[in-house]
Structures are given as C-alpha cells and as structure tokens.
C-alpha cells in the first residue's frame, strides 16, 4: 500500500503534470489564459486576488524551502530546529491564512456575481474544490503542529527526505509512511492538484511573464513568422452570439 501511495502515485502525478503541460502547450495555446473576470467585477477582485496570489507565492516558497533544503544544511548554518520550526509555522500560518481568505473572497465573488458565476466552468469548480482542500489540509497540519508545540512531528525528517528521494528515482517510501496521517492526506491532495494542474486554468502560473522585465517595449515580428496560416482547421473560440449559447454551454 505504502509503495503504491508514496512510490507510484507521485510519479503518475508528475507524469501527468509534465506530459499534460507539454500536451496542453502544443495543442491548446489558445486556451492558455488566466481567464480573467475583472471585466465583470473589480471591487472584490481588487482585495481577493492579490491576497490570494501573493499568499500563494509565499506558500510555494515555504514548501520549496521546507521540502528541498535538508535539515542538515540549515543546522550547519546555525539555525536550530526550534528556530526553523517556529519561523516556518509563523510565516506559513500568515501566508496560508492570507491565501485562504483571498480564495474565500474570490469564491464568494464567483458565486454571488452573476456574470462571473456564469463564466465558471465545471473544470473551474473541480479545480476550486481540490485547491481549497489542499490549502485547508495544509493549514490543518500547521494548526496541529502549533497545538503540539515542541512535540510536533518534524516533517523535515519524514516528508522532506521522501520528497527529495523521488527525484533520485529511489523513493524513500518508509520515511513518508512514518509521517503522521495529516501529512499523508495533504500530500495526496497535493499530488491530485499537480495531476489536474495542466488541465485547468492554473496553467497560467507556468507562463508567469517574468521575461517582461527584460524584453524591449516594441516588438516587431515578420509576417513570415506566422505558422502555416490557412492550413489548419478553424481555431477554437468562435461561438455564435446570443443567449442560447449559455444553455448550450451549460458546462
């Protein structure tokens, strides 16, 4: 059982994440967008979206540091386990709550603003469920760790070595199996999130426009650069105008 959960599933999720992303990038560049709904509503978005996104970025950084940097390294730097843990819990809680509150505002907005709700697909709803549960479970592990105080399970001795071992292609299944159950559930939902990532609107994160900082303002491009115009089928995105397409597209 452990082998399937911690030795096989992660690779399946990774395969879906990488393969799915490549597939989506090759075949659905047109669908690769943030699908912003700011045109419909801006007041709640102005609070919710930055709160969620910046929170999520800190959460991601926290995970990267916690999972990738071995305990021995931080100890060599003279950061005690106690200090590290306290800091991680402190920042993790703040970032997690920000993200969750932001997400809450965004979901509330999505549900209550008519046009935004109309533009919500089933895909979005599934994604929201998985994202929210991953977030809540993550906060739950944090809450448990806080309540346990110094007794708290040290995930850097269980989860982190397992996570790193995945990339050596020699998964340390036992280490992960030894972690408390809350980490198990959180990790599983996390894997699910990565598995569905390429197939949801979350893909926009992979094209974060950091190159904007370095590119010239004016972009010239030759007409010849356009790939085989006319030689392909009509691209998606054309739907006749009207209210009936709402019913047809009851996604």
């Amino acid at each position: 059982m452990s082998t399937v959960l911690w030795g096989v599933l992660p690779y399946l999720a990774l395969a879906l994440l990488i393969g799915g992303t490549i597939w989506r990038y090759r075949y659905d560049k047109f669908g690769w967008t943030t699908r912003s709904s700011q045109l419909y509503e801006s007041r709640l978005l102005r609070i919710g979206s930055p709160l969620f996104h910046f929170g999520a970025l800190v959460v991601v950084v926290g995970h990267v540091v916690g999972l990738l940097i071995p305990e021995s390294w931080t100890e060599k730097l003279g950061i005690s386990e106690h200090m590290y843990h306290g800091n991680a819990l402190f920042w993790g809680t703040i970032a997690g709550i920000c993200t969750l509150v932001g997400l809450g505002i965004l979901i509330y907005r999505r549900r209550t603003t008519g046009p935004v709700f109309m533009a919500t697909t089933t895909n979005d709803k599934v994604m929201y469920v998985v994202l929210t549960s991953a977030l809540c479970l993550g906060l739950w592990t944090t809450a448990l760790a806080i309540s346990a105080g110094s007794e708290a399970a040290n995930y850097r001795e269980t989860v982190s070595p397992w996570f790193r071992s995945l990339f050596y292609l020699n998964p340390d299944v036992d280490a992960m199996a030894a972690a408390p159950v809350q980490f198990h559930i959180h990790a599983l939902v996390g894997l699910l999130l990565f598995a569905i990532w390429p197939f949801t609107r979350l893909v926009h994160a992979f094209t974060a426009p950091l190159h904007y900082l370095f590119r010239p303002y004016i972009v010239y491009r030759s007409r010849d650069a356009r790939p085989h115009a006319g030689a392909r089928a009509a691209r998606p995105g054309w739907q006749p105008i009207g209210t009936h397409d709402r019913e047809r597209g009851a996604r």
Binding site: P209, Y212, V219, R221, R223
Partner: peptide
C-alpha cells in the same frame, strides 16, 4: 503586454 503577445508587423 507582459507576455509580448502584441506585435507590429515588420512588413
């Protein structure tokens, strides 16, 4: 445009 998707045709 952050993505650099908008361009001016050279021709």
């Amino acid at each position: 445009c952050p993505s650099g998707a908008i361009y001016k045709r050279e021709e």
